[in-house]
Design a protein around this nucleic acid. Structure first.
Lengths: 218, 218
DNA sequence: TCTAAATTTTAGTCTTGTCTAATTTTATTT
DNA sequence: AAATAAAATTAGACAAGACTAAAATTTAGA
């Protein structure tokens, strides 16, 4: 089994691999992990010795198949617990992250499997991210950023890219929630702000908002 | 907040205080924690510096009020999670301990409170042990060991003293479960074995069994 | 009471994961 | 292509928590 710290590194590398296809840089990982580059180098070496990552000095790091599987397992647990907290324990979607960060490290195959069943094998977490199944498979979302829609286009809000407390609370305050229908009424070329209609309400949103909302188009 | 290790020590001292009223000995604690006496001494010093225990060299250790409160909080979480695992996730009562040992260290007041509510504020865990409420209060059980009953006396099986997998599986195999009614039919002076009637079935149990079953008498 | 045994503590070491400061390698710029 | 900047690594240190071996203290026995 892996330590909490190892699991957190694997998870971070997994998330950063989207942006760093040719290997995640030490500094990027240090930033993500809120730690120093030297600590990252140390840990990468350990993960490399355990064959969880592929690493060449100064060349960045990638997950091996084993590392990817381990990362996905942690992400599966994280997202299942988030569903549990929201659906069963009445947490708001901006309150679940910190607790799920702890719960994701609990080691028990039976626990994960039974939790999944208890929740009804959910496909998405409260932020719209896909939940890997027990074999590590998950649907790569067929979704685009709201900012990519043209005037007149419509869709359903299906996820958030930024899941910080601040952003989620902004969304709550403006009655933007997953499942809502969206239509782009106007776009401002100057600052990319948008006038949208969401579940009937019309509101103006900045580029920072529209680049952090995922939409499923018809 | 306290580390996992600190919490485990506090919990162990709490449990051992029943048997060691004048201070828990270093060796007893080492045995309970499955570690070495020297490690125990090291940790006791740390806990003592944090005023969680009262310690005088060579004189054993007791919990301070703060230490006791911390221990009870961990025990509360452990037992709530055990209820969750059995009631909601279909774990058997012999499977919950190891997972609850991990879950008890999750730090979130809201999580504990909401879990308690979700479970309907249970009073007892699956082994019949009392669950402290959010203020740390719990009912000291009004119960005796089955071995203390005399011939002809009756009661309800309300808890187990030993909650090892082996003992619990023995009980399952012999259809002994909490809530069952018990009547002592015969006692053998030589080895303290007993013939009992439990929910209609008659069976013979050894002293090792009867000294590990708690009974509530009418 | 004095000694032997048992218990407990101390001293020094190890591992994990982190840090700072210094050095090395790679990337960029002129 | 050399000089400089940026990024990454190494070296050495530290804290937590554990260990072994040795020393100190308490307890028990003769």
């Amino acid at each position: 089994m892996f330590s909490f710290s190892e699991e957190n590194y694997l998870k971070a590398i997994f998330h950063l691999q989207n942006s760093y296809k040719n290997g995640v840089s030490t500094n990027a990982l240090a930033e993500e992990m809120q730690t120093k580059a030297s600590s990252v180098t140390d840990m990468i070496k350990k993960l490399s010795e355990k064959s969880l990552v592929i690493y060449r000095k100064y060349q960045g790091v990638k997950l091996s198949e084993a590392g990817r599987a381990a990362a996905i397992e942690v992400i599966r647990k994280h997202r299942l617990w988030e569903v549990f907290l929201v659906e069963k324990l009445d947490f708001n979607w901006d309150e679940v992250h910190e607790v799920a960060e702890q719960l994701e490290h609990i080691k028990s195959e039976k626990l994960t499997a039974e939790l999944d069943r208890f929740l009804g094998f959910p496909q998405r977490d409260p932020h719209g991210d896909p939940i890997p199944d027990s074999k590590g498979n998950f649907s790569v979302a067929n979704r685009v950023l709201l900012s990519e829609l043209k005037i007149g286009e419509t869709g359903i809000c299906v996820g958030v890219k930024d899941s910080s407390v601040e952003f989620l609370q902004y969304l709550d305050k403006n009655n933007i929630s997953l499942g809502a229908s969206v239509k782009v009424k106007q776009k401002e070329d100057f600052d990319q702000s948008m006038l949208i209609e969401m579940d009937g309400n019309t509101l103006m949103i900045s580029n920072q908002i529209s680049t952090n909302l995922y939409i499923k188009t018809p």
